[in-house]
Write a protein that binds this DNA or RNA. Structure first.
Lengths: 212, 212
DNA sequence: TAGATTGTTAATCGATTAACAATC
DNA sequence: TAGATTGTTAATCGATTAACAATC
């Protein structure tokens, strides 16, 4: 049972680096190159690959083309990844227009809200009334949603989504919701990240707290 | 030397839970309660506290009041945490209006951009021209910024900020920038988070990949 | 007091790194 | 071939957990 989230994140980063290398005309890459680019050790790069049976050539490194396309399959990037935006306030709308998505094969197919003002705004991507969400999800076989609703609505929305074929959400509200076996929640807690940064700045430069 | 980011994140979560408990009228809390709320083991809660010399009473648990105020000092929440928003596109503007911030003592004091249209829009928080950023930072002793500029501008902006008293940024652009000793970067990579979620959904339900 | 919970030590677990044989 | 790099094993490191004496 492999449940280490970090490996997958690293694979995704290796892939991004390799895609850029490829754009520069490079053909091969060594574990050393990827290690430098991503900031990990070469051993770890090789170990990560070997865990997923991604092999290279002794002496010759890895073929970028080959590795990228294997990673695509592994990470599900060979298919378009459709998502919906639940809650089209400022943050939701920012995500709808986020230009980092198309580049990596993520497609926002619809937004949902209940505020009539938002519903009438014209957007390149349809914003539908929240009451249509279950129907839409089933028809379009949506698996992933972003949760950008006000905090009090977050848990209720999760309960609704659990009844559909959505299997996970990225939660931007400040309540940290819990994952369960069949419904994954990834919390993007901006406040917490900022607090953490302040801590690291302030106390990392002062002395270290610790112990033992 | 204590460099474990996770401990700090957990402390912050314990604090949030306790503030809610306090609002409910509770006075004491046991490691068991916090463990349940945050989803970790009671041992870990006690260990985390003990690492920072946060003590309770054998048999009596921890006094919420006491612990919250000690955590406030530890996490720097006893002072207002001022931040600036660098790049006031959709995402930057969403952050400027993010109502999760005031509640946790984070204050957005200004935004910066170069687009005249954005500069003229009226916002409750001033949006200034990017050329005034260094002056503003020094005058207001800003330590933390969010980086919500288009990807190509991100690295350049970091280089500018490094020349000021800003000591760290939350980077929302899809390039993952590297931290250095005296300038911390926390990457909030939304795309990566979504990719990761797709992976977990798709392949966690299929079989597990592997190994040893 | 008896019972329950902390604080801490030792054991466990898992991830990363170092090292090196295999081999291109 | 000689040299360099992979793939993998064993060693290390660090974080989490279990256990329990101290004690309220």
């Amino acid at each position: 049972m492999n449940s280490n989230q970090e490996v997958i994140r690293r694979l995704s980063r290796y892939r991004n680096v390799m895609r850029k290398m490829k754009a520069l005309g490079l053909i091969k890459v060594f574990s050393d190159n990827l290690a430098d680019a991503v900031g990990v050790s070469p051993s770890l790069v090789r170990k990560d690959f070997s865990m997923f049976n991604l092999t290279g050539n002794k002496r010759g490194g890895y073929r970028i083309d080959d590795l990228v396309s294997k990673l695509n399959v592994l990470l599900g990037k060979d298919k378009k990844q459709k998502i919906i935006i639940v809650g089209c306030g400022k943050l939701g709308q920012a995500l709808m227009n986020h230009n980092g998505f198309p580049r990596v094969g993520i497609r926002v197919v619809a937004g949902f809200d209940s505020d009539p003002e938002v519903l009438n705004s014209e957007a390149p991507i349809p914003i539908l009334h929240i009451k249509k969400i279950r129907e839409f999800i089933e028809e379009n076989q949506i698996r992933v949603a972003t949760l950008t609703v006000p905090e009090p609505a977050a848990q209720g929305m999760v309960d609704t989504l659990k009844k559909t074929c959505v299997k996970g959400v990225i939660n931007f509200s400040p309540v940290s919701l819990k994952s369960s076996e069949d419904f994954l929640v990834h919390n993007m807690n901006i406040e917490q990240e900022i607090e953490n940064l302040f801590y690291n700045i302030h106390f990392a430069e002062t002395t270290v707290v610790k112990v033992q």
